[in-house]
Design a protein around this nucleic acid. Structure first.
Lengths: 244, 244
DNA sequence: GCAAAAGTGTTTGATCTACACCCATGG
DNA sequence: CCATGGGTGTAGATCAAACACTTTTGC
């Protein structure tokens, strides 16, 4: 059998699933949607959907993101491919290969899913990934399909990538303070960082932050300088993540 | 339209493509195979093939690797998923989504493709990625499909991953010297490293190298200690890649 | 002996950590 | 005036770069 005989390939469905992360109230949160139909009806899952016949994978991811959250990737949010999941048993109905994407977004957007706000929500990743044990009120068992695994991989990617890239700024609004950026790192890593050393580090890395000239006191205390993300995408030297 | 209506999804073919890297004669080389049929007949391409109906993606990659090279992933070689490529135009015949995998292998194996040695070969990645310009004798235009892009992504992944993991040992035979490991880094990064500092660094990182007790003079000069890869997979602190 | 590669020691500079200290606002 | 967060200075530890030097083999 020729390896490229078009009549010989088994048919697959291809989907994109989205790990959409944001930082709210000092916690790393992910977007989840409630499934309205079997399988896993009523369970929480990652947003996603089928790739259309004429769409590239990243286009499909951006479209699903806009449809399910109103977020547009070019508007500050960051979108990248995460990994692909193709276990033959991962969907009980048919053979589905899912190309997961990772989105890092600022806190601004309120979730919406087809106009039904109750069927989409932000939840702390610790809550979504807590398996077994008693659930908090309103919490439900692990995510549908293999979405716990996908979410876990996405969180791990985000945690490691903010070490050596400027991606943490994708969690911030267009203008932000050093303290706000530090609280992003603290929320994503789940650690406390020294504010003094953090300030010196990020302001000393050329191309990371650009002062806008403005200041704000929205965090209280002495007015803080406002910054925009600079052009640099790679941090050298990297931010050091404290030992656990 | 329901997003999970089984009758509504467009059909895709799903393949795995392999970026198989090794170090030979102080150069980073990739495995390429000559295409025997259209499209791109006669051109070089990455090895790969269709995912079968009952196979996981990593199983398919391991199977293709064994079929096309005789390499077995558990035998020292490293296999990991790289990225997925799904441009609607990437294959002129039909909609194909390819899940690329990255393989790092020691130099030992001679390539074979269905018994036909002439249709598979190792070539320096610089040669395979050199686009345009005059080709050396026996060289051909860029790889088929989007395989130049895939190879380029795989090389970039390997270059960055040996910084902070012990993966460089996957390029070495089961027992190797510090100098051999250093020449792996030099070939993959295309730089010269200080042998003294390199030696101190790798032997000082706990869990990276385990001395076997043996020595060898296969590189000439004073006999060198032989090592096996230790259990550690993450290098902390990382190997520092010199500025270009 | 000489070339070649292995391995050790030492100096210097960069950088991270920890913490003392001052600054500018709101209440 | 005081609590709160923003920002600077500085001493010690740690680590990497550079390079002089010794060791052990093959020829």
């Amino acid at each position: 059998m020729s390896p490229y005989d078009p009549s010989a390939f088994p048919p697959f469905a291809v989907t994109v699933d989205l790990v959409v992360l944001t930082v709210r109230q000092h916690a790393l949160c992910a977007l989840s949607v409630r499934r309205g139909e079997p399988p896993f009806q009523g369970r929480w899952a990652l947003p996603g959907g089928f790739v259309r016949a004429d769409e590239d994978l990243s286009q499909a991811a951006a479209r699903e993101l806009a449809e399910e959250t109103g977020l547009h990737a070019q508007n500050g949010a960051h979108l990248e491919q995460l990994a692909t999941y193709g276990d033959p048993q991962r969907d009980p109905r048919m053979r589905v290969v899912s190309v997961a994407h990772l989105v890092l977004a600022p806190d601004l957007p309120a979730p919406r899913a087809g106009g039904d706000a109750r069927s989409a929500r932000w939840a702390p990743v610790e809550t979504l990934l807590a398996e077994g044990g008693q659930e908090a009120p309103g919490e439900l068992p692990p995510l549908a399909f293999d979405h716990s695994r996908i979410l876990s991989d996405g969180v791990e990617r985000a945690r490691s990538k903010i070490e050596y890239s400027s991606l943490a700024t994708a969690f911030c609004p267009p203008e932000f303070t050093v303290g706000e950026l530090r609280r992003v790192y603290e929320a994503v890593w789940g650690v406390a960082l020294d504010p003094r050393n953090f300030h010196r580090k990020v302001t000393g890395t050329v191309g990371f932050l650009v002062p806008t000239g403005g200041t704000t006191t929205r965090q209280g205390g002495r007015p803080a300088q406002l910054f925009r993300a600079g052009g640099a995408t790679l941090l050298n030297p990297p931010m050091l993540r404290p030992e656990v």
